[in-house]
């Protein structure tokens, strides 16, 4: 592995009362690469990324960002480092338009008032940099967009923030074939821009199409983190269901 990770988790743990959900995770994500986090329902995928997003801090463990240990205690900490999350249930406001959603929480001001011109320009540029062509107007209300278009807006928002790490929690779960392809293409373009992309997916077909690394999670343990070319579909299914362990990895409980 010649890649230098932008983010590295070391022995990260998280419990909810007696239930220990993350039992010592070591995980890395690389700039310009797509890392897929896979695992069965309840494996702890969302818990893992909530820690990265700062919304639900880990109990213990170390997070290295650019090789430096960092604190991720709040969403603001994560945002300051350039970590953006595109949530499973999209965090968009139906009543606002695309530009307003993309700039929500970080509006451009000019003399204390909203500078709609600059925001509209930058939003369009961000969408254009992802080669988005399915939207008619950036001033459309988000309520009128399809599921795929909403994902696009959410992803473009991360681009706009010049995010260095973008985490996508099941971005294609609710989408049809064509829209899934669209979003996956977007994910690849995001990586091409040098962003470290972490994608959670239950769809291994998607994973094999778009990911550079795959990291299967099983009962709170990371089974492995392997380049996609060095593993097979069947192996990954095995890791996810626990019927297989990664050669050379620590023992799985």
């Amino acid at each position: 592995m010649t890649d230098v990770p932008i983010i590295e988790l070391q022995d990260v743990r998280k419990s909810f009362g007696p239930v220990s959900v993350l039992q010592g995770i070591d995980f890395r994500a690389y700039p310009g690469k797509v890392t897929a986090l896979v695992g069965d329902n309840g494996a702890g995928k969302s818990t893992l990324i909530k820690g990265l997003a700062g919304v639900q801090p880990y109990d213990s463990g170390t997070v290295l960002f650019d090789g430096e240990p960092v604190e991720l205690q709040s969403p603001r900490d994560a945002a300051a480092l350039g970590i953006e999350v595109v949530y499973q249930d999209l965090a968009l406001c139906d009543n606002l338009d695309i530009v307003q959603n993309m700039f929500l929480g970080r509006e451009e001001l000019s003399r204390g008032t909203l500078d709609e011109g600059v925001m509209e320009r930058d939003a369009s540029d961000a969408l254009r940099s992802l080669s988005v062509r399915t939207m008619t107007s950036v001033r459309q209300k988000v309520a009128s967009l399809s599921g795929g278009q909403r994902q696009t807006v959410a992803i473009a928002r991360a681009v706009l923030k010049k995010a260095r790490v973008v985490i996508l929690d099941e971005p294609t779960a609710a989408l049809g074939v064509a829209q899934t392809a669209q979003v996956l293409a977007l994910v690849e373009r995001l990586a091409h821009q040098g962003v470290a992309v972490i994608i959670i997916s239950h769809n291994l077909q998607d994973v094999f199409e778009v990911a550079d690394y795959v990291a299967p999670l099983y009962l709170g343990h990371l089974v492995a983190e392997v380049p996609i070319g060095a593993t097979t579909y069947d192996d990954v299914v095995g890791y996810i269901t626990g019927s297989k362990t990664f050669p050379g990895s620590e023992t799985v409980a």
């Binding site: 603001r76 945002a79 999350v85 965090a91 968009l92 009543n95 929500l104 929480g105 970080r106």
Partner: peptide, 9 residues
């Protein structure tokens, strides 16, 4: 969408 607002900081 209050949740979206919260997540946007």
């Amino acid at each position: 969408n209050a949740e979206a607002a919260r997540r946007a900081g």
